[in-house]
């Protein structure tokens, strides 16, 4: 069953189009990450789904029920959609217990008590039940906020950059904790972030947003291997894009490194080769190869990051230090053209 269906969603503010013709669905228990640069409409999308802003066109359906249309907005309190924010948004005048109890209105007392203990155990904060938000660390506060959303019983959770106030180690820890909790409780979630690794970690599917439009929505692996255009590639893929020129004589796209026979892509003026990490190999093979000049080496612990150059083509690759073999400042690279994609701008 679809928990959420967004069809042809349009939102305009002061004649400016913030969201433009958006379409996607969310299944029960599915986690969708929304990734995009700031100002691309991520937060507005959440506001539309939670009912805090009216939509200009299209339709939002929650569990077969229309909740937003151009002339109708169901109030947020009737939607069964929970929110988690970057600033945790715990009620500062209530204890941890009262904060969670707030989400359990109209439930019998016994049920409330049991549920509070249950969700606090889930996030490992049962001993903080009597504390006030200001007595908790950032990570603990966010755990309580998540516990509160789970307790509410709402089956859709919207998270607006929930971990960006936390330090990197804690962030990673909370990510996997949150993913497990959501999966265990079969809660669907839309998770906004601008951090590609966070999206890879959390998501079943990722939607890449640009200027109010979904550029691509796919599984993390598919997005990385097959970006639809250079925007998506730049945003989360390898940064290695090489301009490709079509050669009418050979019916192939070429660059100084290699050429790949392919039918001409219409519509787009500029076309690029997209080189995912595994298309560039260090191991000796039959693949086409070139000697690259090494411009810079950056030690990153597990990996060595290299800036390399061939004629006017600059690239960067990251490989385990033991595998890198540089001779006279030159590095030989082998290109698996089967893995190289040709994408429009």
């Amino acid at each position: 069953m679809n928990i959420l269906q967004v069809s042809n969603l349009i939102h305009k503010y002061d004649k400016e189009t913030i969201l433009n013709d958006m379409n996607f669905t969310l299944k029960k228990g599915e986690i969708l990450c929304v990734l995009g640069p700031s100002g691309c409409g991520k937060t507005t999308l959440l506001n539309c789904i939670s009912g805090f802003v009216d939509i200009t066109g299209g339709k939002i359906t929650c569990k077969e029920q229309v909740v937003s249309e151009s002339n109708f907005t169901m109030p947020p309190e009737k939607r069964n959609v929970s929110l988690v924010f970057q600033d945790y948004a715990l009620f500062p005048h209530m204890s941890v217990k009262k904060n969670i109890q707030f989400a359990l209105r109209n439930k019998p007392k016994n049920y409330q008590e049991e549920k509070i203990v249950e969700v606090l155990k889930m996030v490992g904060l049962l001993e903080k039940i009597k504390n006030y938000p200001h007595e908790l660390s950032g990570g603990e506060q966010q755990r309580v906020a998540i516990a509160r959303s789970i307790a509410s019983g709402n089956d859709l959770l919207l998270l607006d950059e929930p971990f960006s106030n936390l330090d990197p180690n804690l962030r990673q820890e909370l990510r996997s904790e949150l993913r497990n909790l959501l999966k265990k409780n079969e809660i669907s979630a839309i998770f906004i972030t601008h951090d590609q690794y966070e999206a890879f970690d959390m998501a079943d599917r990722i939607a890449v947003l640009n200027k109010g439009k979904i550029e691509q929505i796919d599984s993390p692996r598919e997005l990385y291997q097959n970006p639809k255009n250079t925007f998506v590639a730049n945003f989360l893929g390898s940064k290695n894009l090489i301009k490709a020129i079509y050669d009418e004589n050979t019916s192939a796209y070429t660059c100084p490194l290699f050429s790949i026979p392919r039918e001409r892509i219409e519509m787009s003026e500029e076309v690029y080769f997209y080189l995912p990490n595994d298309a560039i190999q260090l191991k000796e093979s039959d693949f086409i190869n070139h000697d690259f000049e090494v411009l810079g080496e950056h030690f990153r612990g597990d990996n060595l990051e290299l800036e390399i150059k061939f004629r006017d083509i600059e690239m960067s690759i990251s490989r385990p230090a033991y595998a890198v073999n540089i001779r006279d400042k030159l590095l030989k690279l082998y290109f698996n053209t089967d893995l190289i994609k040709i994408i429009p701008v």
């Binding site: 939670s50 805090f52 947020p76 309190e77 959609v81 929110l83 924010f85 109209n106 509410s152």
Partner: peptide, 12 residues
């Protein structure tokens, strides 16, 4: 944010 959370939890 607090106001929005409260509303999403079912309060008018």
């Amino acid at each position: 944010h607090l106001f929005k959370v409260s509303r999403s939890l079912g309060y008018t």
